[in-house]
């Protein structure tokens, strides 16, 4: 017998993933701190180590509330000023 599956389709409006950078030398890096405990500390240290190892440059540090999407102006600055964003830290 045939039955339905329960999940259905995914919206076509779903954004795809960005293409990965092939090299970081000379690239501009940003940090988006979601204000979870120690997120800023962790992300900034990772960013600085990446810069030391690859020749990338940390140029922008932004923050947002973890529970909601980043405001448009924050996303706008990141989109305009950097090529790689480090973000995401849980409790």
């Amino acid at each position: 017998m045939r039955i339905y599956a329960p999940a259905g389709e995914v919206s076509a409006s779903m954004n795809g993933r960005a293409v990965s950078l092939t090299a970081l030398a000379g690239k501009r890096i940003g940090v988006l701190d979601n204000r979870k405990p120690n997120a800023g500390l962790l992300l900034n240290r990772v960013a600085n180590q990446i810069c030391e190892r690859t020749g990338a440059e940390l140029v922008l540090i932004e923050s947002k509330n973890a529970a909601i999407a980043a405001p448009d102006e924050v996303m706008g600055r990141l989109t305009k000023e950097v090529e790689l964003v480090l973000t995401g830290s849980a409790d």
Partner: peptide, 16 residues
């Protein structure tokens, strides 16, 4: 049974 573009089936065939 039939599949969607996101690799999950829309329908399934089961024995009972």
């Amino acid at each position: 049974g039939s599949m969607t573009g996101n690799a999950l089936p829309l329908q399934l065939d089961v024995a009972d």
